[in-house]
Write a protein that binds this DNA or RNA. Structure first.
Length: 764
DNA sequence: CTCACGCTCTTTTTT
DNA sequence: AGAGCGTGAG
């Protein structure tokens, strides 16, 4: 067992050896935190603690997976018996076992954000509120915010928690929402935690039982816990007080979700005789990277200053590359990857591209595909959020829980059976009047008047599937049953008939779903449909289930900075380092907002082991049109001697253009070209000729603008007056002679005209 | 009732 | 650039 401690420093050792009593580990980035946790688990087991007596929770699915993997490598198969979960899945486990004590049937389903919004939409409709003026997503996040709040969890009435500035009755919506969920036997993400708190408060039996089972607690990312998570931990650990929490206030990035940084700052007050251990040595990043990261985070006022010691040598300087636009940024990133790969023996999986928002991923994907570089995206468009997957899972949800009207609405006319809105409303009406579930109205054929033919089909399909499901698992495996669901409902058939590119990809996705169910039942052979449904809802942040392991290890990773927490890569690209992108526009108004963005930036930089590239653009297109960008303030917080500044200009524009006069200019004039040492352009793309000039050139390059060689009487970028559309600007000239086509931008929209037939007037 | 088309609005991070 | 909605034809 001395082996276990061999590769640890003094503080890490102390943390591993302190097994009994409260322990607070302040673990800076790269300080070997996960290592300590896993070794600590191994050490506990080696001293005779049973694996199933250990409870370890992390915050995200990915971190959880990582921890499981690493525990398994150290302790072997008995690692399987250690309870390692996310907070939410731990809550599901607890509620499934003991929820009956507070009247939560164990068959409850979990509503994700989409389901929540469906419920809210229907409530808004019933209250005659315009979903355009009152956005369901806004209501959903407000509801979530209330439910996350400390006072709500401590029992304060909703009416006292609501701001009074709403033009509508929020309280009524809230109450109806809660009723609807109860009616549907559903819990949302907040409920999982809240109900667990309620259970632990009210069920002595549950608490005793759980406390007997779990005697050692470990909570990772403690700075990200919200109030209910804090309470849950407190209840569970109250018997033994063997609680070890790990965190770093500099990496708190979830306050918008109710995470309360005070939980870590006051831990020592909550638990008497807390032992505090600081892990201040960074083993991950080379010194220059660490210094850059540190120079950023130092600008936060509200933090405990810590002395982070770089263990590694100086390494390479951080690079800041200013690109002319997002295509330049994408090209720079991909070129740099190719260039590094050609010089150094690095695998694709050694590279990661981070961005602030998921929407930024697309351009990187395009460039990576172009170069045939395999990549995988974490988060973003999630597999289980695809329409066809949600549809089929909605069938299963409904079969398991026929009270789930959200699922019913989803499937009743999917595929189309001629049961339209009118019929659906009538069913709901009858159900309301007779005080029966909607499904019973359908099942017992209580509908009067004109009954759509398809309704009878639907009834038969559901009854048949319900009978079939009774034989699962047993006669039928879950995956066999799900295959039947896809077939019997006619879903597969309707996609086959469509026979488009899209429908075929949907069919593929359904096969992937069946594969993932098959995998699931290998792990849990006795799993009933209900268990599967419950597990799957929490699985949403997982990547595509069919990603084969090979691809996983040989792919470049793309993800948001939030998703990057806890991970590390030899080469990191932190992209979109512009004001209003990172820090994000919606966070810049408050000091707290800025500080959280800064912590996020710190998290991003400290993921890098050997090299970090920060990129910004001068001009970025969004759906609002092109916008001039100023470099992120975080860049200016890094001293110049820690930054290698480059610039990169791409002529590629993705076949689109930036022109049209309508872009906003927020006062920044790019005066950077003097340092224009172009970075590692390994390879220029073959550009379609007509794309060549379609990027609006930077101001100082404007004079280099070539004259159009097509024989047009107009010049590129010339201002013209169109008789019908008014003033515009020529952004593209194609063809020659009588066949010249002009693309003219009028603010947001572009239109193409034949020069010959269009009476344009020059405007200069 | 369904489908297709065109219009509008979209602006963060995740369990 | 894309989703979601309303409208109008079949």
């Amino acid at each position: 067992m001395t082996d276990l401690l061999k590769n640890l420093n003094e503080n890490q050792k102390a943390a591993v050896l302190h097994t009994d009593g409260p322990l607070l580990i302040l673990a800076g980035a790269g300080s070997g935190k996960t290592r300590v946790i896993t070794h600590r688990i191994a050490h506990l087991i080696s001293t005779g603690v049973k694996p199933w007596n250990i409870f370890a929770v992390t915050f995200t699915n990915k971190a959880c997976e990582e921890m499981k993997k690493r525990v398994m490598t150290i302790v072997g198969p008995q690692g399987n018996s250690v309870f390692i979960k996310t907070f939410h899945s731990a809550a599901v486990y607890i509620l499934r076992r003991f929820g009956e004590d507070i009247k939560i049937p164990s068959s409850f389903t979990i509503y994700d954000t989409g389901d929540q919004e469906d419920v809210i939409k229907r409530i808004l409709a019933s209250m005659n509120l315009d979903p355009k003026k009152v956005k369901p997503s806004m209501i959903a996040s407000k509801i979530s915010e209330v439910k996350d709040s400390e006072r709500f969890i401590d029992g304060v009435d909703v009416s006292l928690l609501l701001p009074d500035y709403f033009s509508f009755n929020f309280e009524e919506i809230f109450k109806k929402y809660q009723e609807k969920l109860a009616e549907n036997n559903a819990l949302d993400f907040n409920d999982l935690l809240i109900k667990t708190v309620e259970l632990l408060r009210n069920s002595k039996r549950a608490l005793t039982e759980l406390q007997r089972m779990w005697q050692y607690f470990m909570i990772d990312e403690y700075q990200d816990t919200n109030h209910s998570q804090y309470i849950i931990a407190k209840y569970l650990a109250s018997a033994t007080k063997n609680i070890c929490v790990v965190g770093d206030d500099d990496q708190s990035i979830y306050s918008w979700r109710g995470a309360d940084i005070r939980n870590i700052l006051t831990f020592e007050k909550d638990y008497e005789k807390t032992k505090i251990i600081t892990l201040g040595e960074n083993y991950r990043s080379s010194k220059q990277i660490l210094d850059a990261a540190y120079s950023v985070i130092q600008n936060n006022g509200n933090r405990k200053d810590k002395n982070i010691i770089a263990f590694r040598g100086d390494g390479e300087r951080a690079v800041w590359c200013m690109a002319n636009n997002e295509y330049g940024e994408g090209e720079f990133v991909v070129n740099t990857i190719l260039s590094i790969k050609s010089r150094e023996k690095l695998k694709n999986s050694d590279f990661a591209i981070f961005y602030r928002t998921n929407a930024q991923s697309r351009i990187f994907e395009d460039f990576l595909r172009r170069e045939n570089l395999p990549y995988r995206i974490i988060g973003g468009l999630k597999f289980y959020e695809r329409k066809e997957i949600k549809d089929i899972l909605a069938y299963l949800k409904f079969l398991v829980n026929p009270g789930d009207t959200v699922a019913l609405r989803r499937i009743i006319n999917t595929p189309a059976r001629g049961i339209g809105k009118a019929s659906q409303d009538r069913i709901a009406e009858i159900a309301e009047k007779e005080n029966l579930p909607e499904w019973v109205v359908i099942r017992d054929e209580l509908m009067t008047g004109r009954v759509p033919k398809g309704l009878d089909d639907f009834r038969k399909i559901i009854v048949k599937l319900m009978r079939m499901m009774e034989t699962v698992p047993g006669e039928l495996t879950l995956s066999q049953f799900m295959k039947s669901v896809i077939d019997i409902t006619g879903y597969r058939e309707s996609l086959r008939e469509e026979n488009t590119l899209e429908s075929n990809s949907r069919l593929d996705n359904l096969d992937e779903l069946l594969n993932s169910i098959y995998d699931y039942e290998q792990t849990f052979p006795d799993a009933a449909p209900a268990n599967f449904i419950q597990d799957i809802s929490l699985y949403t942040s997982e990547e595509n289930p069919s990603d084969d392991p090979e691809a996983k290890t040989n792919s470049i990773t793309l993800m948001t900075v939030h998703n990057a927490k806890g991970l590390e890569f030899p080469v990191v690209f932190l992209t979109g380092m512009e004001e209003d992108t990172f820090p994000h526009k919606l966070s810049v108004d408050t000091d707290e907002g800025i500080e959280e963005e800064r912590r996020l930036c710190y998290v991003g930089i400290t993921r890098a082991m050997d090299r970090i590239f920060l990129t910004s653009t001068d001009l970025r297109r969004s759906y609002m049109g092109p916008e001039y960008k100023r470099p992120s303030r975080f860049l200016s917080e890094i001293p110049r001697d820690l930054l290698d500044v480059k610039s990169y200009t791409s002529e590629y524009s993705g076949g689109r253009d930036y022109s049209g006069g309508g872009y906003s200019y927020n006062g920044y004039s790019p005066q950077r070209r003097e340092s224009a040492a172009s970075a590692a352009p390994v390879k220029k793309y073959q550009l379609p000729v007509e794309d060549k000039n379609s990027v609006l050139p930077p101001v100082e390059l404007a004079e280099q603008q070539e004259l159009s060689a097509t024989g047009s009487q107009f010049l590129l970028r010339e201002r013209v007056l169109h008789p019908k559309y008014g003033p515009g600007r020529i952004v593209k000239i194609e063809g020659s002679g009588d066949n010249i086509k002009l693309t003219i931008s009028f603010g947001i929209t572009n239109r193409v005209f034949m020069e010959k037939y269009t009476p344009l007037q020059k405007m200069n």
